[in-house]
Structures are given as structure tokens and as C-alpha cells.
Design a protein around this nucleic acid. Structure first.
Length: 461
RNA sequence: UCCCCAAUAGCUCAGUCGGUAGAGCGGGUGGCUGUUAACCACCAUGUCCCUGGUUCGAGUCCGGGUUGGGGAGCCA
């Protein structure tokens, strides 16, 4: 628009000499009496366009006094840069100062801590690191849609508001229009019959159950949307609001599920390596020196598969001390998962067939009577990154399991119906988008890969 | 929610044995320079997180709190 060219395209021009117009924000100014250099960035790439300004310019005085953060429009000739550091630069013929930034601008041309930048989340995208994070985030989201689209998966929008809290009480955010100062009571309990939905509702913790219903029409589907957990988790890996990808395939078993997960993760590794090269190189240089090597290794590896029972054997034989006990029937802790993927396998590994009693009610019971068809994909450095299962398609066994766990059938009548008519084997998995992003960028805190993080006590911006 | 650590200039930090605070960067001014987080000189900037206590005297020691960070659990 208005003939503007993005910095990314200007820097990638086939040859110098063109008259161009760029619009962006000043990252640094190196000003002098005889010449001034402005580094201009418009978010299209990490690299800045060097704008060279000489005293002949009408407003040279004002331009040489610009400071970091200012917005401007620059017109001039793209030419080869005589100095090192950039191939092209813009010889300014005209600079229009659009918006100045005074000395109170919080971003300085120096390194800031991530903790500080979190307090100015509205400005941090203007830094190199967060610019890279959010470019990769955008690119990766589009790659995810492309992956599934190319394979014939239907994209389904499952509800954000739900009355379904079957995955564990107390973790839902409540959604209500009741007067919180004076809620209607019935025998001491809040009476939701007069609430907007005439029942207790909350924000979704997973689209899986609805996703299963669509899989039994469209064969292969996926969801990709916001997910909410009201848990008081204070860690670098948890947010109250995050985005989750949940594919579901009909006529698929656990191994087909694992095969999809493997293809999916490799595709995304390859995608960022091939399409986000500049930003990935930055992460490798500045954030995590082993990043490119690790992602390249995952992209070209073949994932191992290991039974839970075998993993327990390995852990029992381990010579390293663990803080938590290892026993068949107990869930694996992060330390155990990392030992398996890093020390035993030395790469990505699917752990499959977990004890029934530590897994969710909807997972398919195996013939051994004590395990279910669950899988977790473990990767070096982070541990579990994908969790999935083959679902229990047999109505009687599903009802039996729900009964054992005290799960109310009435609220899930629609889910159970899917096992009444045309039930079929099906399987799926869930992947936390931010955790994927952490894995692929080397960023170590989930609050630094989501634009405006929501965590306990934090809903600013 | 539990355990551990931290909080000093706009930012990143130092501050010895308890004696009323410094550096670098950033900012301002000037100089200089086809510069690359430019460089050089000068200048300005503090609720030492809050609160109570010990002490002649607390940034420093002790109690309580707040906020942040790391780890764990929960999980994606």
C-alpha cells in the first residue's frame, strides 16, 4: 500500500538501484554532524534496514535526534552498502517522522532480562528475541494447518464454553452471568438454574470429546484452539490460557496414532528449519547453542517405541538416583521421562501401554486387563511433548470404567451415543502449541512464547 | 499448593566487618566518525520492595508481608 516495500523484501532485492519506500520503527540511531545511520525494522524479518541520512536532507537536525522506538517513513534509493554488516542500505531522500519516542521509552538498545520484558509485554515484540518468537509462532501455526489440510483432515471448532468438566473437578474457569456479590443459593450451594446456560459452565479444558464425535463423521479431524486450565500451577511450562492441537482419526489404532504424531513433529521441525532460517539461527546463537543440531536430529530420526513396563525395568536398573520412587503402576515423573529419552534411547521415544489406573477413563483397555492403549512422546531436554491414546470404543467397557471412576453418565450422554451407533476404533493425541514452540525455539519459559501470558495472578494487557 | 533463592538509579548489577550508596549500559549536552549494541568527554538521576524489631547507627542483622525467579506437584 502506498508503494511501501517491507524491509524483508528490500533486503532480498535482486539488485540495487530501485527507488523504494519503507515504513517502520527505529531500533538504533548513530548520529553525527556529517552522517546519521538509522536502523529501521518493520517486523517482517529480524534484520534491520540501514537508512543513511546526510545533512542535505531538509529535516536532518530532527532526524539525527530521533531515538529508539520512533516511527518513520523513509523514501530513497536502495543501494549496495559500502561497509560491512549489510548488503543493501537505503540512501534517504526524504524522511517523514511519523511518531517520536522520548527518553521514557522503556526499551533501550541493550540486552534486557526476560523478566523485565514480561512487565512490558505490550512492547517486547519490538525486541529481536520476541520478534523472532512471534514470527516463528505465526509461521508454525500456519504450517500446522497446512500439515492437516494436505492429509485431508477436517478442521473443527469445538466449543470454548462447556458444561463438561469430566476430566477432573476444580480445574475449570467458571463462566457465569450470576451476580457474584449475591448468587442465588439452594441449600447452601450456588443455584445455577437461573444462570445464563441454566447450568454450571466453564471454559474448555480440551476439545477432545467433541473432536471424537466429528472423527466419527469426517474420519480425520483436528482442533487447534485456545484451552483453559484454572490450576494454580506456577512453573515455566504452565499457562492458564494456551493453545492446543488435537487430531483424532477414525479406524485408527495406537500405532497409527503414534505414526501420525511422528510425522507431524518431524514436519514441524523441518518447517522451521526451512522457513524460519533467520530467526532459528538467532535462537541457536543467542538462546540455545544446541538447538539446530537437536531439531535437525529429530527431523531426520526414527522415533523409538517402548512399553511402559519396559521403561520401568530400565528405570529400576538405572544407577542414577531418582527423587521419586519407580514401581510398576506409578506414573513417571519428569526425571524418569528425561532419563528414558536422554540416557536410554538418546532420542524421541513413544512410551505406550500405561497402567490403566493412572490414565483417563476414555482410553482403550488392553487385553492384559491392567493397561490401556496410551502413548506419550518423550523428547530430549523437555520430556513429554505429546500425549495421546486409542479411545475405548466398546460401550460396555467404557460404561464399566466410568462407573469405577464415579463419572456421571448423564452429562456425557452424547459422548456415549457415539459408541451406540456406528462405533469404531479411533485414536488421537494432544499437543500444547506453546510447548512445541518452546521446544523449537529453545525459549525456556512458556510466558515468553505467548503474546500476553495468563498465569496465576496475571491477566494484564 | 509445597521447597529454595532474590528485590539497590530507567535497565543489568556491585556494595567488604553494621558507619547515610557506586559501576556499566541507557538518557541529556558537546565533540568526532561510512557507523554496526559506534567511539570520546562532561552532566543528571535513588521510597536501597513494604513493615516491625535489634542497635548510638541498618542497603547490610532478625520477624512478618509483598513481588519476582528457579525447582516440584498438577498437566499440555
Amino acid at each position: 500500500m502506498n508503494g511501501r516495500i517491507r524491509v524483508r523484501d528490500a533486503l532480498a532485492a535482486a539488485e540495487a538501484g530501485g527507488k523504494i519506500l519503507v515504513k517502520g520503527w527505529v531500533r538504533t540511531v548513530r548520529a553525527g554532524k556529517e552522517i546519521t545511520f538509522l536502523a529501521v525494522n518493520d517486523g517482517s524479518c529480524m534484520a534491520n534496514l540501514q537508512v543513511v541520512v546526510e545533512p542535505g536532507l531538509a529535516n536532518y537536525q530532527q532526524v539525527s535526534h530521533l531515538s529508539t522506538g520512533s516511527a518513520l517513513v523513509a523514501r530513497g534509493v536502495l543501494r549496495e552498502s559500502p561497509a560491512a554488516g549489510q548488503r543493501y542500505e537505503l540512501a534517504a531522500g526524504e524522511i517523514q517522522i511519523v511518531g517520536t519516542a522520548d527518553e521514557t521509552y522503556p526499551l533501550q538498545k541493550k540486552r534486557h532480562s526476560f523478566e523485565y520484558l514480561r512487565t512490558i509485554a505490550h512492547l517486547r515484540p519490538r525486541t529481536n528475541t520476541f520478534g523472532a518468537v512471534f514470527r516463528v509462532r505465526s509461521s508454525l501455526a500456519q504450517a500446522i494447518h497446512r500439515f492437516f489440510a494436505e492429509r485431508g483432515f477436517l478442521y473443527v471448532h469445538t466449543p470454548i464454553i462447556t458444561a463438561n468438566d469430566c476430566e477432573g473437578a476444580g480445574e475449570l474457569f467458571r463462566v457465569t452471568t450470576l451476580n457474584m456479590a449475591k448468587p442465588p443459593l439452594d441449600r447452601g450451594e450456588v443455584d445455577y438454574s437461573g444462570d445464563f446456560f441454566a447450568q454450571a459452565t466453564g471454559l474448555t479444558v480440551s476439545g477432545q470429546l467433541e473432536g471424537e464425535l466429528f472423527a466419527q463423521t469426517f474420519s480425520d479431524i483436528y482442533t487447534f484452539g485456545p484451552t483453559f486450565r484454572a490450576e494454580n500451577s506456577n512453573t515455566a511450562r504452565h499457562a492458564a490460557e494456551f493453545w492446543m492441537i488435537e487430531p483424532e482419526m477414525a479406524f485408527a489404532d495406537l500405532l497409527a496414532d503414534a505414526a501420525l504424531a511422528e510425522e507431524f513433529l518431524k514436519f514441524l521441525c523441518r518447517h522451521v528449519l526451512d522457513n524460519c532460517t533467520e530467526d532459528m539461527n538467532f535462537f541457536n546463537d543467542q538462546i540455545d547453542n544446541g538447538l539446530l543440531q537437536r531439531i535437525e536430529a529429530v527431523a531426520s530420526s526414527s522415533f523409538a517405541v517402548m512399553e511402559y513396563t519396559e521403561a520401568i525395568d530400565h528405570l529400576k536398573k538405572a544407577t542414577v538416583p531418582f527423587a521419586f520412587p519407580v514401581e510398576w503402576g506409578l506414573d513417571l515423573q519428569s526425571e524418569h521421562e528425561r532419563y528414558i529419552t536422554e540416557q536410554v534411547v538418546g532420542g524421541p521415544v513413544f512410551l505406550i501401554n500405561y497402567p490403566r489406573d493412572i490414565k483417563a477413563f476414555y482410553m482403550r483397555q488392553n487385553d492384559d486387563g491392567r493397561t490401556v492403549a496410551a502413548m506419550d512422546l518423550l523428547v530430549p531436554k523437555v520430556g513429554e511433548i505429546i500425549g495421546g491414546s486409542q479411545r475405548e470404543e466398546r460401550l460396555d467397557l467404557l460404561l464399566e470404567r466410568m462407573g469405577q471412576l464415579g463419572i456421571n453418565e448423564e452429562g456425557l450422554w452424547w459422548y456415549l451415543d457415539s459408541r451406540r451407533w456406528g462405533s469404531c476404533p479411533h485414536a488421537g493425541f494432544g499437543l500444547g502449541f506453546e510447548r512445541l514452540l518452546m521446544y523449537l525455539t529453545g525459549m525456556e519459559n512458556i510466558r515468553d512464547v505467548i503474546p500476553f501470558p495468563r498465569t496465576p495472578r496475571h491477566a494484564e494487557f
